[in-house]
Design a protein around this nucleic acid. Sequence first.
RNA 1: GUGGCCGUAGCUCAGUUGGUUAGAGCGCCAGGUUGUGGCCCUGGAGGUCGGGGGUUCAAGUCCCCUCGGUCACCCCA
Length: 430
Amino acid sequence: MSTFQAPTGTRDVVAPESARFAAVVGRFAERARLAGFGLVVSPMFEDVAVFRRTAGEESDVVKDEMYEFDDKGGRRLALRPEGTASVVRAFVQHRPPVPWKAWYVTPAFRYERPQAGRYRQHHQVGVELLGTPDPAADVECIGLLAGFLHACGIHRFELKVNSMGDANCMPGYKATLVDYLSAHEGELCEEHRARWRRNPLRVLDCKKPACATVRERAPRLSGALCDPCRHHFDAVLSGLDALGLAWRQDDTLVRGFDYYTRTTFELGSLALDAAQNALGGGGRYDGLAEQLGGPATPGVGFGCGIERVLLAAAAEGALSEVTGRVDAFVIDLSGGAGALELTSRLRAAGISADRAFDGRSLKAQLKAADRSGARLACIVGPDELAAGTVTVRVLTGQQAGQQETIDREALVGRGKELLAVAGRPAGGTP
RNA sequence: GUGGCCGUAGCUCAGUUGGUUAGAGCGCCAGGUUGUGGCCCUGGAGGUCGGGGGUUCAAGUCCCCUCGGUCACCCCA
């Protein structure tokens, strides 16, 4: 047990897992770029009001999960618990032309008890699309999320969608729901008997048997949508159909933040046994920019948890080919000059290469080469140094153990040939 | 915030009703092979037994507290 450890609920992501972590981010970045989203990097902490105003005072995240602190200037700040609020704040501050399409990768902080797939610092990738109420924007976001998961080798997931209505129809539904709940107050679970007045929608989400029974007979959100919301939702659903994405409407999908209007969605893994199986989720937040002091601007987006994606990928046996191994390992018995030259030469040609340090024995260096997972060992001893050659030894696959001594100038060309035989092109897997 | 289980080497773990210098496997280092990895053999390094307090002639072992891990509730990514 070391003296210092990562704080409770946090962890170090190190190789080889970090190679998969990087691959997940890379694949998301690629999908986002292909869809015309630009990267936004915003601070990891904000005036605490940014989160209070948007997530809602009553949300669990704001109530008791935020990392809040005062800086030396007396400002009340909070580490971001999620990505959307900061990005929308950035939008309001800079007022870029709309539609504004931004993607991000960021840590997110919530003070919770850690458990499988849940950390106090986790990481999310996500997008926000601001400036259009078009249901096609909702579909684009959902499609991007699903496509990204497929790109990570994750196929066993379920897409849940719902519509929360808007400022026109939601208040009416809430009133109906409140009437209904007040008539059945005694049947609610202990927690919601005390809390339902402050956040009636939450009852729909409660998993306790008592609330479930009440919920069964509660007035349906889907039946209360106004015509524009109904049409918007229908357009989203038919867009998903057009993309070939299977979906399931879930009236209880209310989600944890207060800012959602109309569309909400969540993608849950079917391969994870753990209780934490939500991979990503989001929705539309047409009033959010205005709440942050900007012009009324519709928007839609999602966040997706990288740790959860890694868990789901592992459960489906995906991303196992991403190892971070190098292509070649240079072994030097000539005093160091050979390794210096050859690693540079290989790397410049796009062949990843590692080497040993400390002038160890040939046996030790070959062992290190073996452990590195490199397919090729490039050996430079006194003989090769004098002759201007290099001995290339194949370490893996059917040709393991074969070696040839070639001219040093031919190393890059021959190396690429040998690597291609293994079906592993130089440079490794992104 | 609530509850269950668990903390012994880098990792996975053993350690008897409390009893001498705390062990194994894997991993690591070196040698067996003065230029050849994986398999094998030999040797070596590596431990405040999570931390603190208590009981006892004696604590890895029993008690209390604490920290950490893990799983679940809650909530979410």
